[in-house]
Write a protein that binds this DNA or RNA. Structure first.
Lengths: 203, 203
DNA sequence: TCCTTCACGTTGCAGGTGCAACGTAACGGA
DNA sequence: TCCGTTACGTTGCACCTGCAACGTGAAGGA
């Protein structure tokens, strides 16, 4: 065998280019040629590593899912673990913002591609179960059923992410909202720092 | 002047066709020709009523916003009003499911079109202010600051809608989650009906 | 009756799309 | 040294895209 190239590395390189294009110009602008240009390679090479465009899109989704998973460091404290899991789904820094834009784009994309939808669903359901389990493990039952609380937290971060990405909400407010709901989910006393100047009437 | 045609009616007809295409096949499949075919007219007529594709997209967004607004009936009870506002953002029936798919698609689209983003932002901020005001009007302070609660509720329904649309969550569970959080926001006793069989391990 | 004005329909174009087919250079085992 | 395999690069094709340009029929005021 010649050339000895790690295919997975190449595919990951291309997936990164795709994610950059998707985040900056939207999924509608993701084409073989744009991805190739972004990666600095020819369109032919992209075709060499992905037989079809859909295959490339799904691989890119796998890449981000794996990275989110990898960023999770084990924490003995259930609430801290859940919080770190949820916080990294919010677009609080430049990297998460890119991933957030990609996520929104993929949710729209999933509406027409059943296999993409299945992939997203699997991730969501897994996280929900994990969150519910940690809430139960925490021991202090709050006002919410753990399953309801987990469902709510997952949906909440999803919505907060969308609102922050759209510029509807300041990142700090998103974080404060998340923490307040974490308090409720974990049955700890609510300690909402006074919201800065959130009025809603000045726009 | 000949032919006497109501332009707004025609544009709305085309916008409806666009919304159907967007909901069923995704925003990537929204093209002048597809919209025209869905509406049963020629592409030339579409061009006659919208000088550019973007103009058509934004008009369609205005149409749904106006409809959501129009469906709101005044209710003296703050909580009932907020609930009816939020419930209609969930894809609980076929019509709302179409609108939900459109909304997700537009959120992705807004990432690249600043004017679309501005339109969405305006709606979100308006609703947030309205919800916060009603929570305050209700009188029984709950565990959450009204602004935080309003922000949370809006983000929650956004996320719940995404999860229901993706098949990650059953509509009933979404509704139960919303009601539980409404209880918290309005400071009323939590009355979560026992969740049916929400396990998360059966998918 | 004419003739302007509106409401479309038709045609065409330059560019982009996914993808198949084919070419080729280089490495490594035989 | 030969030769098969791998890793690309190149070319081409059928199709779709938004949009401009132009054509046409009818309605209604003059």
């Amino acid at each position: 065998m010649p050339k000895l190239v790690d295919p997975h590395e190449r595919r990951t390189l291309l997936a990164d280019a795709l994610l950059r294009v998707a985040a900056e110009r939207g999924l509608m602008d993701v084409s073989l040629r744009h991805v190739a240009a972004e990666a600095g390679v020819t369109a032919g090479m992209v075709q060499h590593y992905f037989r079809t465009k859909d295959e490339m899109m799904i691989f890119a989704l796998d890449v981000v899912a794996a990275r989110v998973q990898a960023r999770l460091e084990d924490d003995p404290d259930p609430r801290r673990l859940v919080r770190s899991l949820l916080v990294q789904l919010l677009p609080l820094d430049a990297d998460r913002e890119l991933e957030g834009r990609v996520a929104v784009a993929y949710h729209a994309y999933a509406a027409t591609r059943p296999d993409v939808a299945a992939r997203l669903r699997q991730d969501t359901i897994g996280m929900r179960a994990a969150v519910a389990e940690r809430i139960r493990a925490a021991g202090h039952p709050g006002p919410l059923d753990p399953d309801v609380a987990a469902t709510g937290l997952l949906a909440l971060v999803e919505g907060l992410a969308v609102h922050v990405l759209g510029g509807h909400l300041a990142p700090d407010d998103a974080l404060a909202t998340l923490d307040a709901h974490l308090d409720l989910a974990f049955g700890t006393p609510v300690s909402t720092p006074p919201p800065a100047a959130r009025s809603g009437s000045r726009a």
